[in-house]
Simulated scan of single mutants.
Amino acid sequence: MSNKTLTVKHTADRFGQPLACLQDMPGEGAEFRAANLRRLARGLEMIADECDRGAGLVHPETITYELDQAANPFTTYRSEIRGGYSTAQRLAALVKHLYNGAAHTVRLDNLLSNADEYHARIALELIRWYADHRENCPEFMRLARELVERDHPTTDDE
């Protein structure tokens, strides 16, 4: 691991499940500042996402991940957006609004005035990411569809 990259060999364990072998990790006693820890955590999230998608199951592959790459807030804050508490519901409403504003309204004043600093930052990161990527972000599209389906399930009769 350098300051800016993390090299991982994706393969499968003996049960055929995805396995990530991190190379050149710092050893015991390594010192990290908060910013470095956050960068490492974002990198590990990217690696976990690749494992979830089955990286290395067909054939082992080695990938170098850029740690300075901006984190996708639709992935990073997925649990906060899907949470059952009121601010999470407002964040979910924001995601659905970005997905289809005509069908899903959102009150930004309500969201921002009732959110703590952490959740307000999440809302702003979501808007910023959407402004840059729009519907070209598969994680955004997947999450938005999940939220719409969760809140408005379809039945086989429809």
Rank of each mutant, 00 (worst) to 15 (best):
W129S: 15
Y77R: 01
G27H: 13
R107N: 12
L108R: 06
E125K: 09
P18E: 05
Y85P: 02
G43I: 05
E61F: 15
H10I: 10
H10G: 06
E50V: 06
R145A: 10
E139W: 14
T11A: 00
G56C: 07
R145I: 07
P26R: 00
A12D: 09
R150T: 05
A92N: 10
L112N: 09
K9W: 03
R14P: 04
R134L: 02
C137I: 10
L111R: 04
A144R: 05
Y130R: 08
I63G: 09
N110T: 14
A30K: 06
G101D: 09
H152W: 04
A70Y: 10
T76V: 15
L98P: 13
L67F: 02
A34R: 00
K96G: 14
Q17P: 00
E146S: 08
G16Q: 10
H104F: 08
Y99Q: 14
N136T: 07
E45R: 08
A71G: 06
A102R: 03
N136W: 02
T11P: 01
L67W: 00
L126E: 07
A144M: 02
T64N: 10
A93F: 05
R39E: 00
D157A: 08
Y99I: 06
A123V: 08
L91D: 12
A123N: 02
H133I: 03
A35Y: 12
R14L: 04
Y85V: 02
F32K: 01
A102L: 06
P26K: 04
L108M: 08
T87K: 13
A30V: 11
V58L: 05
D49T: 00
S79Y: 10
T105W: 01
E61S: 15
Y85F: 03
C137V: 11
I47H: 04
D68S: 06
A115P: 08
L67M: 01
A131N: 15
F140H: 06
E125L: 13
L40A: 07
T62Q: 00
D116V: 03
C21L: 13
V8R: 15
G27D: 14
K9L: 05
G27L: 12
T75A: 12
E28F: 12
A70V: 15
D151L: 08
L98A: 13
R134N: 15
H119C: 14
Q23T: 15
H152R: 05
A88K: 01
R33S: 09
T155W: 15
R142K: 09
D52K: 11
D116T: 02
D151Y: 13
K9D: 02
Y77L: 03
N36T: 06
H97D: 09
D13F: 09
V106I: 06
A48K: 05
G83K: 06
A12V: 11
E80P: 04
F32Q: 02
R107F: 12
N36I: 09
P138Y: 10
C137P: 02
T105S: 11
T87H: 14
L44S: 12
P153K: 06
G83C: 07
D109N: 04
L40H: 08
L91H: 14
H104G: 03
P153Q: 04
R128P: 07
D157G: 12
R145M: 12
E28Y: 11
N72K: 07
L94T: 11
E117S: 15
C51I: 07
Q69R: 14
G27Q: 11
Y118A: 11
